[in-house]
Design a protein around this nucleic acid. Sequence first.
DNA 1: TGTGCCGGGCG
DNA 2: CGCCCGGCACA
Length: 357
Amino acid sequence: MAAAVLTSLSTSPVVLNNPPSGFGAETSCDTWKEAPAMSSSCSSSSNNSGDWSWDPPSDLSTPSTPSPPLSTDIATGFLSSLQSDIEETEATHFLFGDPIPRKRKNSTKVMFKCLWKNCGKVLSSSSGMQKHIRTTHLGRKADLDQSDGEEDFYYTELDINVDSLTDGLSSLTPVSPTSSVPPAFPILEEAQAVPPVPVKPEAPMVSPLNLSAATTILSQSAPTSLCHIQTDHAYQAMGPSGLQADLKSPPPGMEISIAWQQPSLFPPPLPPVLFKSPSGCLTPIRPADVGERRPQVSPMPIAKGHPLVPPSMPKPTTGTRKPRGEAKKCRKVYGMENRSMWCTACRWKKACQRFVD
DNA sequence: TGTGCCGGGCG
DNA sequence: CGCCCGGCACA
């Protein structure tokens, strides 16, 4: 999350002047508008790269930003590489607190596949993969250079079933029943790997189409997940707060991934429109974008003591109480200590009106 | 156990 | 009304 916030900060035009390394507590606290929850956690939790900074050199070293998902046939590449170069690089494990469990308890195991063109290398540890990518593809020094997080975009996580390796390739199943996060993750990786390519706006929607047959399984769920993130932020983006006014014209690509990892943490850098079309899933969820109120509540007009309002009928799907929107509310965002920053409704312990869901 | 917020009380 | 909080349903 710190990484996420840092990224948003570093890419935000406002803060761009500051040296990337200079994000002290004071900086972030002063600019709480961009990174609300920052103050408490800026130095504590760093997932895979505490000192993340988007450094241009990495881009230079990869002139044709790879579109890994181009997908050499995952199945075959996966099989062969699986046998040949599985390797453990535990050494750097602690450096980036490996966010993903290496092994599943049952017969499933998490592997990491390099998405770089014509590579398809599969490793068993994320750090190993990062190292691989850093050294092999990004052409950096192995140890001296800490991860700047860019490697993340070039590999994906595989959730494989050890028992049935053979048919594991046919149904390479990112939808593995036992895995919680992983299924969607690789998809995201692929989708996000694309944006850096020149054509940014179209990238997200085009990518699923470009994926080869092998990845169609993946791609079919990709739009939905993206859209969910999207919807998540959609309302935040157009929320009345104007909180995120600062974050405009976000740079392509990477934000998506971060947004995915911490869905509702910070304002969406990408305009909602991007994802609207692919599956139109934005529409069903939020039919009217201005009506920030309850999703289920029937059209507003009949507010007055209209005789025809049956008390029972407009029951929200989930029984008695409304499902409780999953967006982070003022309390969560600003924290108890910054209660003065909450929207009034939150202060009154009423339904939050800043982060409406 | 923490969070969101309805229902209701007080000035 | 604005303001606050008890307490409940969720997560």
